[in-house]
Structures are given as C-alpha cells and as structure tokens.
C-alpha cells in the first residue's frame, strides 16, 4: 500500500488564549490509506473543518503531526499543496464579477496547472460539473448549487492525489447531490484518496470505506464503514402490524421489541433484528404464526440510526470523560 495518504498523529488545535481559549481538536490520530475514502462525521463545531484546514495547510496544528503522502503539513507546504485539492462549500470563495471560467482558470493556475494544459483542464472540469453553458457568466449570477459545483470543479481541476471535501453536497438538489456522489465514487477508481466531511449521512453511507466520528474535538469512533453499521447492534428494523392478541414470542431469537403501539385494536410492533437473512425470516414467520398480521415492513439499519445511537452513547459517557480530562488542564491539551 505504501505510505498512507493521510497520517494524523496526536493532533490538537487550540484557538484563542486564556478565557477565550477554545479547544477545537484534542489528540486526534487516524490514517487514510491510499485510494481510500474516509468519511468524517460530527455535529457542528465538532472540529471537522479545523481538521480539513490543517490538512490543507491553511492552519497549523497546535500539537502533534499531520502528514500527506509522507509530507509534513507544517514544514513541507509546497509538496502537500501540490498533492491536495480542497473543496470548501458555501456561497463565497470566488470573485463575483469574474466568469466561472475566469475564476476556475485563475485558481487552477494557483493550484499548479501548467500554462499549456490549463485551457483543456478548465474546460474538462467545467464539463464534469455541468457548467459549460454557464462558464461565461459572472459567478455573482450563479445559484447556490452552481457555486457549489464550481467549488467542486476547483477542487478537481489540478487532479490531486488527495481530495479534501468539506460538506460537498450542501446546497445541491437531490439529483445534483447524487450526480456528485457518482463522480466521487468514480474518483476512487482512479486511486484518489478522499477525506469527506459531511452532515449528510447518505454521502458517507454511499461513499466511505471508513468512518471517523469526531465529537468535541476528539475521535470517538474510527472503524470500517461496514463495522460502523454493525455497531448499532442490529441489522434491521421490522415493523409488524396486526389485529387481535399480540404474539407472545416477539422478543425471542435475538429480536428486541423497540416499541408497541395499539390504536383501535390494531397494534404496531417495531422489532430490531440482529441480522436479516433467510433464517431470521423463518424465525419471524414462526413468531408471527398465530397472529392476524396486516402487514410487515423491513428497514435495514441506516447510518443515520447508527450515528444517532453513537451520539446518544457519547452524550451519556460525557460526564465521565470530562472528569477524566480535568487534571490535565483546562482543556486537556498539551500546548506549545
């Protein structure tokens, strides 16, 4: 596999001083293998964007080291920038009076695209995000979604080996967002390594090989995406609707009854099942054999459910963790 695309060891980042001190990252350690897509999840203010900025050399870590293809983000800025493309979403980040093509051309030049190839690469990047027809229009006339697409074109135009995507689907309609996911998936096949932060769990679910959950600046979960889905402890939620007496054996065979509601003689039971295959189907059929079943609906566990559970568990553990941090100092971070 060679050197990891990203290697982050003990990275911490503190903003401000004294009473205004804010600890954005604490002792963050993880790796992204070459060609891998790492999905970074976390609520607002968790430290995702700070992490992305450190890897993009826009921000220095206060502690620890971060390397991109073996190059230190603090000391080998040029090498890191040559290998990295960054996509920060949002309405800003462009010259509004300039056309989309002129903006892209200018920033492509700054990203290292050569004089001889810049025209073709800019045209390809614009075509790739469907902005060819609008290329001559000033960016100030673009919709939010078009600006987001231009951001993406900007991140890709220099053909980076590592792509840092911060909330790439924000502002895109569902069709555009899906189109972008397909493009990102295609990038993986070309060997590009990707660090993807997103609030949209669908992005992570579709694309990520690994999942990193950050909360309050700490890495709480770092696991393969498949393992992450399993960490919910169940594979699917089965919703059964029926009439008459409720079957007695619903909580057998490893199934857990999540909830039971009764409305006018019609009951609805939500069951969590540890896996969803032929065997479990037979066991469920046996459990429901004597019931007057009106309908059954099976929903495989979604990342959304897992994430909600993980965050719930983290919130429960928080008092203990905070108490653990106290002796190490106000923020628990070793400062330089």
């Amino acid at each position: 596999m060679g050197v990891p695309a990203v290697e982050v060891t003990g990275v911490g980042r503190v903003f401000g001083r004294g009473r205004h001190e804010v600890v954005a990252l604490r002792d963050v350690t993880f790796e992204v293998a070459q060609g891998q897509i790492l999905g970074v999840l976390g609520s607002n203010g968790a430290g995702k964007t700070t992490l992305t900025k450190i890897l993009a050399t826009l921000l220095e870590p206060t502690t620890g080291t971060a390397r991109v293809f073996g190059h230190d983000v603090r000391r080998e800025l040029r090498a890191v920038r040559r290998l990295t493309g960054v996509v920060f979403g949002g309405d800003r980040g462009f010259y509004g009076a300039l056309s989309g093509r002129d903006n892209l051309r200018y920033f492509a030049m700054l990203a290292g695209v050569g004089r001889r190839t810049i025209r073709a690469k800019v045209d390809d990047a614009l075509a790739g995000v469907g902005l060819t027809d609008a290329a001559r229009r000033p960016v100030e006339t673009y919709s939010k979604g078009m600006r987001q697409r231009l951001h993406i074109a900007l991140g890709l135009v220099a053909e980076p080996r590592l792509l840092l995507l911060d909330e790439p689907t924000v502002g895109l309609d569902p069709v555009e967002a899906e189109r972008l996911r397909t493009s990102i998936a295609a990038l993986r096949r070309t060997g590009v390594s990707i660090l993807l932060t997103s609030h949209y769990l669908l992005d992570i679910e579709r694309l990520a090989d690994r999942v990193l959950v950050i909360a309050q600046g700490r890495v709480m979960v770092d696991t393969p995406a498949t393992e992450f889905a399993r960490s919910a402890g169940f594979a699917a939620t089965v919703t059964v609707q029926g009439r008459g007496p409720l079957p007695a054996r619903l909580d057998s065979y490893g199934m857990t009854v999540e909830s039971v509601e009764d409305q006018g003689g019609v009951w609805t039971a939500r069951l969590r099942v540890p896996d969803w295959g032929g065997e479990m189907f037979q066991q469920l059929s046996a459990a429901l054999a004597d019931a007057d079943v009106l309908g059954v609906d099976v929903a495989p566990v979604r990342l959304e459910d897992v994430y909600a559970l993980v965050m719930q568990r983290l919130a429960q553990d928080e008092p203990a963790r905070t108490a653990q941090d106290e002796p190490a100092g106000a923020a628990g971070v070793d400062r330089r």
Binding site: R92, F94, F107, L110, A111, G112
Partner: peptide, 12 residues
C-alpha cells in the same frame, strides 16, 4: 470574497 486563503497559500 473568501478567496484570501486560496490566494496566499497556493503553490506560488
């Protein structure tokens, strides 16, 4: 414009 960081942390 939000372009400062990109302009001053480029390859040049």
């Amino acid at each position: 414009y939000g372009t400062l960081a990109r302009s001053v942390t480029s390859l040049y």
